[in-house]
Design a protein around this nucleic acid. Structure first.
Lengths: 336, 336
DNA sequence: CTGAAAGCGCTAACAG
DNA sequence: CTGTTAGCGCTTTCAG
């Protein structure tokens, strides 16, 4: 049904290889011939079958992005950066939602390599076990990990400076005079969130008068923020500042706090992390740590493409982006 | 490098065709043979090359989703529904961001069909010109249009009842006693938004005391909402209620209004459309029209898969989802 | 039930 | 510069 390279060859009176060369703009084909072939191809509305080409070249010109959930604003932004970069380079991007489920993640890995994607962008799923790491690298596909500070591993990584971000948050809260501080974060061992907590706790401990924050783990989403904030109010009603490990959690925190009659920032200061677009429009506008999400996605495919170009096994690349404090109105000085 | 079906054949002492049959669980292969082959395949860590298979079967088991921008919360939700449904059926989903640009859209269409995706989910890009419509259907790939009420066209469609949603909004605002009403919407001829406006305007006109709303077109995002609201305040400062065609626009509207010192809902009521997750956490919580985004994405791939199954050219399918008013705190009765 | 052979549509040496 | 010839890795008749 579809018109193939053979049809074009027959119709233009040359061999298929000539058609292939002419259409792929390679050297070694007379200008007249090329013109003619191109014209015929156009007339016949010939569309090369990339699957067939992929079979012989071994390149599918397809990349994959595995995130926990695309509905998470952070990932949506990363995905857009990644897709744009891929598009510019002539690559397609297949989207996978892993829900942070290692098993689902592995299934995707399998399926993707069977389809011969040229590379995989993967959001750090929880912590990678040795076995999983092996399985992944055994896939034989270049992989770059998102939100993962360079591990001892073999994978390339791209991330924001989460630890510095945590420290930045701590510094800010300290400067505001807070002493009863809580950090609401995601699941234990959650790659980058763990880094944030680390930086936060360390900076607090390094203060002239060290502070040890309350640390609560939960789900990294709006609901998680709500639940954690409720738990916090029950267990530590005297806390005056909360640093949530993501903006979504911060939104949930604010909601729960407000519903309980606490004013923000008058009664309690709240900080987030990510600086998603909506951070500026919630009430009150959220003070948060900005990380360049779009750029992270973009950089990740650039690295991936580089890896793909030079036949897989070159040394891994690492890239870390700086973060910055965005001061808005969800925090204020601790009342005397 | 990769182990192929040949390796498995050689290693297990049978012909490749037998391996193929054994592994694909087809009839006509002795149980012992199958077991043996399966064992060998496992030992060799054989992974079928789906590209090769696709070349012969003509199915890639890949679907594509073309949206304007995945960062739009609405699309993220749709994408998740779509991806989940695709995953369950063993299909992959490639993500494309068209930015509502007809040219980019067409380029994606081309590229996708060259890669032989089995079907395309496409968000209505502006209005489809006759030529574009032809080009699309000429692609020879089943397509289902999102957010498009059944057009005269050949494509299947899935959408929410936008017109009814617009009417619902009008009714509500009318009930609240508003008479000076504005509708802030997206670009002209923007498929579903046009429907919303239509239902809104019609219902307003059908009131006992008909109302003719101010209609402003702009970008369908936060910034668009800001700009339109500013324009509105300049041109029609007496408006007491605003219906934005999307929640994102409503957020922008609220922001601009607040910055100008208007209180919401005391001075002006604001409604949105979509009911994205964040609608409940902005201040004030947004009264809006809910549409089942996840379900829309899901239903779309289900239809698409059905189309794929029965060899493309069957009659198109249409599915419309009901919407409902979600009353929160961004609207109130017009003050006397 | 299994093997042999053809071929999906294209690229890539290798001749000429 | 162009044609011939092999495949890429798999499925699928068609024999046996």
């Amino acid at each position: 049904m579809a018109v193939t390279i053979k049809d074009v060859a027959r119709e233009s009176g040359v061999n298929v290889s000539t058609v292939s060369r002419a259409l792929n703009g390679e050297y070694g084909v007379h200008a007249d011939t090329r013109e003619h072939v191109v014209a015929v191809a156009q007339r016949l509305k010939y569309r090369p079958n990339r699957v067939a080409r992929g079979l012989v070249t071994g390149r599918s010109h397809t990349l994959a992005l595995v995130v926990s959930d695309i509905r998470n604003l952070f990932f949506a932004e990363v995905a857009r950066g990644a897709e744009d970069a891929a598009y510019r380079a002539g690559y397609d991007l297949v989207l996978c939602n892993s829900d942070l489920d290692p098993e689902k993640q592995m299934r995707y890995g399998q399926s993707l390599m069977e389809k011969r994607v040229d590379g995989i962008l993967m959001n750090s799923v929880a912590v990678l076990s040795k076995k999983q790491q092996e399985q992944l690298s055994g896939l034989g596909v270049p992989i770059v990990l998102l939100n993962r500070t360079a591990p001892r591993g073999v994978f390339s990584t791209v991330c924001a400076d989460n630890e510095a971000g945590g420290a930045l948050a701590a510094e800010y809260l300290l400067k505001l005079g807070h002493r009863k501080i809580a950090h609401l974060t995601g699941p234990r061992h959650h790659g980058n969130m763990t880094e944030r907590a680390k930086g936060f706790v360390a900076r607090l401990a390094a203060a002239r008068r060290p502070v040890r924050p309350v640390l609560l783990h939960g789900k990294n989403n709006f609901q998680g923020g709500v639940e954690l904030a409720q738990k916090l109010m029950a267990q530590h009603p005297d806390v005056t500042a909360v640093f949530a490990a993501s903006d979504m959690m911060a939104f949930g925190t604010i909601r729960a706090l407000m519903e309980a009659g606490r004013r923000i920032p008058e009664d309690v200061s709240v900080m987030g992390f990510d600086n998603v677009e909506l951070a500026s429009i919630v009430h009150p506008p959220l003070t948060t740590i900005h990380q360049p999400k779009y750029e992270i996605g973009q950089a990740a495919v650039e690295i991936l493409l580089r890896l793909v170009g030079r036949g897989e096994h070159q040394g891994p690349e690492h890239r870390m982006f700086a973060v910055e404090l965005v001061e808005r109105q969800s925090c204020m000085e601790r009342k005397a």
